Computed example of a mutant assay.
Amino acid sequence: MASYVVMEPPERNPEQAVLVRDGFAILAFIAPFLWFLWHRMWLEALAAVAAALLLGAFGALEGWSVAATVASLCLSLFFGLEARNLRVSMLKRRGWHEWGVVDADNRDEAETRFMAELVFADDEARQETPSPALTDRPAPAKGFGRGSEPALGLFSYPGAR
């Protein structure tokens, strides 16, 4: 079962929410520049190109080709592992809000669970709103349990609420 991070746009419209699957991104491992461009991650794409050029220049030096190859493989592995987290960070920079995490077998099931949770939360909110007849009643006493009695054997101090 995979985990999906649900990101809502700044206007909090659940219809436009983006689900980002947590896990290894094979395309980001193979071609990080293209993966970043596909997801409109301009700064990350620029950083990937700069890192690739730097490693290419490093590998052109005599005796450093093996080290540059290993570093390039490590960089690709990093992009494959962290590309989805970088996408969540990019969305946060653009003002998106993290709604939460949904566990599902595939993307369609994750969307269904997300929408079901929204409907369930909306129903609970409607049930918790007091009716006009209940608003005339006095507010319940503050404190733990019944009135001002101590809870779980804790001492209460006179005048403290």
Score class of each variant (00 low, 15 high):
Val5Arg: 14
Val6His: 05
Glu8Val: 04
Glu8Gly: 00
Glu11Val: 02
Asn13Phe: 02
Pro14Asn: 08
Pro14His: 11
Gln16Met: 10
Gln16Val: 07
Ala17Thr: 05
Val18Phe: 01
Leu19His: 06
Arg21Asp: 01
Asp22Arg: 15
Phe24Ser: 02
Ala25Leu: 01
Ala25Met: 01
Leu27Met: 15
Phe29Trp: 15
Ile30Gln: 03
Ala31Pro: 01
Ala31Cys: 07
Pro32Met: 05
Phe33Ile: 15
Phe33Lys: 04
Phe33Gly: 00
Phe36Val: 00
Arg40Glu: 13
Met41Ser: 03
Met41Arg: 09
Glu44Ala: 12
Glu44Gln: 15
Val49Pro: 00
Ala50Trp: 04
Ala50Val: 14
Leu53Met: 13
Leu55Met: 04
Leu55Thr: 03
Gly56Gln: 07
Ala57Pro: 00
Phe58Cys: 02
Leu61Asn: 06
Glu62Trp: 06
Gly63Cys: 07
Ala68Trp: 02
Thr69Tyr: 09
Leu77Glu: 05
Phe78Leu: 13
Phe79Tyr: 15
Gly80Arg: 03
Ala83Val: 08
Ala83Leu: 09
Asn85Ala: 13
Leu91Asp: 06
Lys92Pro: 00
Arg94Gly: 12
Trp99Ser: 12
Val101Lys: 10
Asp103Asn: 10
Ala104Ser: 06
Asp105Ala: 13
Asp105Trp: 01
Asp105Tyr: 00
Arg107Gln: 08
Phe114Thr: 06
Phe114Lys: 03
Ala116Arg: 14
Glu117Gly: 03
Leu118Asp: 01
Leu118Phe: 04
Val119Thr: 14
Asp123Val: 09
Asp123Arg: 13
Glu124Gly: 00
Gln127Glu: 12
Gln127Arg: 14
Pro130Met: 03
Pro130Gln: 02
Ala133Leu: 07
Thr135Asp: 05
Arg137Pro: 00
Ala141Thr: 09
Gly143Tyr: 06
Phe144Cys: 10
Arg146Gln: 10
Gly147Thr: 09
Ala151Leu: 14
Phe155Ser: 13
Tyr157Asp: 09
Arg161Pro: 01
